[in-house]
Nucleic acid binder design. Structure first.
Lengths: 345, 345
DNA sequence: CTGAAAGCGCTAACAC
DNA sequence: GTGTTAGCGCTTTCAG
């Protein structure tokens, strides 16, 4: 059975306290352990196969050294990369516990309540957009004093630190890159949503088009709730291309809110004999790994998502240590990656 | 600050014990709570915003109601699907904590030690293949009495329950399907590895070829350690196609150990003007989501990975409850999905 | 039907 | 330098 501090203490002939401090290598206050004692304790512990009991330590220490990470979905590698950044940053002191809400408010609620029950020391979360849960976020932050750092999107009414990539600049740059290739008639394929960050994509597009004097060519095709259910995406893709075929003059480029939707659009083009990029350029906005596959080669906009995780974790740790609470905001740069689905006109 | 049972007890004018039982809706032994009391307690708890302290409950109850899930990698949706199955099965009593080792023995060790420290009630793990950690697995199982269920691969020397898809049948069926399309010269592109499950893929191929009287056409191209590092895969893919081009008679079909490698092979074919499937059929073996993308349409072999998770969780729960320990083995069926990269001869 | 009390294994004052 | 002790918030006997 599991070895306890007490057993080690007995065997080493010292007190439980000494063992506790020795094993954690800490000497708070005036406490100074003699190297001999420490060494002996370490030996005994090792020989007995001691494994710290994190549960007891958490209860006694009033800190769990875990942080709750709530993401929208695992699919694709978006959050995998973010999570990796978080891990690297907090390792080895803290360990992240992962939760996924899939945009389902029920799940989101459960996971957040779980975080409270588990008494995580901090939370990094991607809000689902569902207003019902806002109060819960507030409760976590205010009642339980658990610091929260948001990724990707804000929560209306809550002033919390946020880390995200530059959504405005993403579409803004994409339009400009397309413009440089000679495109003038660029349609934006987006999503309507109550999430602030969708607005930013919209704004980036609009602003760029206006700056370039292309306001008359602005065209937006959008749909609610296209959260990457394969079937929904496919239908949307079909609609997009049908609409495109009917317009005149036709757009020479499609700028698509996410890469997975773009893949479906590529598929529809293929089926209808529309040659990409000869007949139409297609560009995604959230560079996913299949995009760089040689058979796809989707042009897209890349961001260092690991850095998102890293920064979020850094902010969170600061807050955990200092109990500080200014709502910092970190916006990270993005980079256009031109591949094979866009061509110069 | 956090509300405790004691506070509720005081406010409701009952004892802490009663509150504890009331909130958990349990009446063990001869205990029977009067509906009135229960109702009042529930009310008070609600009004005070009580959130159970999972840490304290775990320490006192000697169970954490968490299970450690250790997977090889998140990339792709393999483990996402497995994890989802696990979640569904254990919800809401247990909650899984996710860990990833990326085939790195250091990480694997850390994560397993973490599981011990956190005193998870059970472990579901995909072994990295690294012998160094076998003793740790044994320690978890034997010293700490934490039940383990393996997914995908066994651990040499340990008799543990295992859930996986039918690897032998995967390649066996793939060969047969290709045969039905008229292919006789089928090359297997695999990985050499000390992992048992790679052997199974090999065997399935060999056996099928022999059964079909194709032993003279057997050809295996393989490489060590092709664990889906984009660059390694690309190089391997190049080598595969170069080798294929030189042989005579050329294989009419390539059966590739994993879909991501197959994507790269598709890419090389494209670059060299080899028309797939006209000039060469390509088939993957672990149907990943990009495979069904219209622009890829890779033929592959699908399995219900959610079911893998579900079964593993079910086995684990049984073991947690009953402390049983027979090394059950569950092998799940697979299904060939023919898409656009294979053609009848 | 309900309460008192003994832990769970550890941390961190507070002593000496 | 080291030990004593009071909790952390809960579960679960055991005693009414």
């Amino acid at each position: 059975m599991a070895v306890t501090l007490k057993q080690i203490a007995e065997k080493a002939g010292v007190s439980l306290t000494t063992v506790s401090f020795a094993l954690r290598g800490r000497q708070p206050g005036k406490r100074r352990l003699s190297p001999n004692t420490v060494e002996r304790i370490l030996e005994v512990a090792d020989e007995m196969g001691y494994r710290p009991n994190h549960v007891a330590a958490s209860l006694a220490g009033k800190r769990t050294f875990t942080i709750g990470v709530l993401v929208t979905a695992l699919r694709g590698d978006f959050y995998e990369r973010v999570l990796f950044g978080i891990k690297k940053e907090v390792y080895p002191e803290f360990s992240p516990v992962l939760a996924v809400h899939n945009y389902n408010p029920e799940y989101e609620k459960n996971e957040l309540e779980n975080f409270i029950s588990k008494r995580v020391d901090g939370v990094i979360a991607a809000f689902s957009g569902h207003a019902d849960n806002i109060e819960l976020y507030r409760e976590i932050n205010e009642k339980y004093n658990i610091p929260i750092v948001l990724i990707d999107r804000r929560i209306p009414g809550l002033e919390l630190p946020l880390v995200r990539t530059d959504h405005f600049d993403t579409s803004h740059r994409a339009v400009n890159s397309l413009f440089k290739l000679g495109h003038r008639n660029i349609t934006y394929v987006g999503v309507v949503d109550n999430l602030e960050y969708m607005e930013l994509f919209n704004d980036g597009y609009r602003t760029a088009m206006i700056e370039l004097g292309l306001e008359d060519n602005m065209k937006i095709v959008s749909q609610t709730d296209a959260h990457r259910n394969q079937k929904v995406l496919k239908k949307f893709a079909t609609r997009v291309i049908s609409a495109w075929e009917k317009t005149s003059p036709q757009a020479t480029a499609l700028m698509v809110i996410n890469d997975w939707l773009a893949y479906e659009i590529l598929g529809v083009c293929h089926d209808r004999g529309i040659n990409v990029p000869q007949g139409l350029s297609v560009m995604g906005l959230d560079d996913c790994s299949p995009s760089e596959l040689p058979t796809i080669g989707l042009s897209s906009v890349w961001a260092d998502l690991e850095l998102v995780g890293k920064n979020a974790a850094k902010l969170l740790l600061e807050r955990i240590e200092n109990n500080s609470n200014e709502p910092t905001r970190i916006i990270l740069p993005v980079h256009v990656r031109m591949r094979k689905t866009t061509r110069p006109l």
